[in-house]
Design a protein around this nucleic acid. Sequence first.
DNA 1: TTTAATGCAAAGTGTTTGCACTATA
DNA 2: TATAGTGCAAACACTTTGCATTAAA
Lengths: 158, 158
Amino acid sequence: MNKEITPCRDLLERNGYRFTAQKQRILEEILIANTHLSVKEIYERVKEKHIGIATVYRNLKCFETLGIVKEINENGMRYYEKRIYSGQPLHIHFKCFICNCIIDIDDYTSDLEYLKINRKIEENSQLEIHDANIMLIGICPKCREDKEKCQGQPNIDV
Amino acid sequence: MNKEITPCRDLLERNGYRFTAQKQRILEEILIANTHLSVKEIYERVKEKHIGIATVYRNLKCFETLGIVKEINENGMRYYEKRIYSGQPLHIHFKCFICNCIIDIDDYTSDLEYLKINRKIEENSQLEIHDANIMLIGICPKCREDKEKCQGQPNIDV
DNA sequence: TTTAATGCAAAGTGTTTGCACTATA
DNA sequence: TATAGTGCAAACACTTTGCATTAAA
């Protein structure tokens, strides 16, 4: 069993949740994937064991409440990824506006810079900032290559 | 007529779209609001003139493609706000995880800092970054006040 | 006059809920 | 054994689509 599961189990039980086979199964997939998964992707990976989609939704919401996973909203879809408890406290995503792919950006230095800004915003406002969702938008390397050939882009020039 | 509309009209026509009364009406609401609006909110404000929800969706998508408005995905909902062409190139939002309200953060210095980091990420990767969606998550001042009395929080302590 | 855009309703997709049943603590 | 959790199906909410009609260029 994935050793990352034990602290999750503790967290669940300490909050009065039961650590069911379904919870374990769903959690395992998220931990193994180590990237964002859509609800559908998670369901596809666990449904063979008679786990219903409602259970997937219910447990994802539970995991989110406890901070075990993080929800990413993009294009009307929900993605989930594990939240890292120590070390890297935020996770930057990049979305290509041509092919709509989502790429994880793992740049520790940039993460730290972002956090510094957040601290500053916190000081200047009455807000208490716990987390940040950062989605950069642009063109991925693959689509960039194809750009020369393709003339399908809108005529933007304000 | 709102003078911000003229460049939008030009942009639409240059891209082969017709500048209909519906487009103008929807656009006006977004420009007047000067903050994020949900699809429902936009529809509520224009429906009196027989504008159907499908038209609202179709036009918002069109505006988004041309970069006139910006889409924000949060909690499975879509919000739209005008994209500012000059000056402030990105817009930071804050979401309270207790009451789910969304607050606009207008901090020009932080915006610039964020942009600097994006340039650095761009240099270190093969990505072309055009824009950024930044959603800070935490507790708003109002909920912060109420926190002392309320014991409803999950027992998180990993 | 041509054809993009619209309104409406129906269909599609993603998410939640009610309820009888199951399995955990 | 008490009750949180589950699977299923039905309900719900948001979004898209087909089609006849309207109106912008």
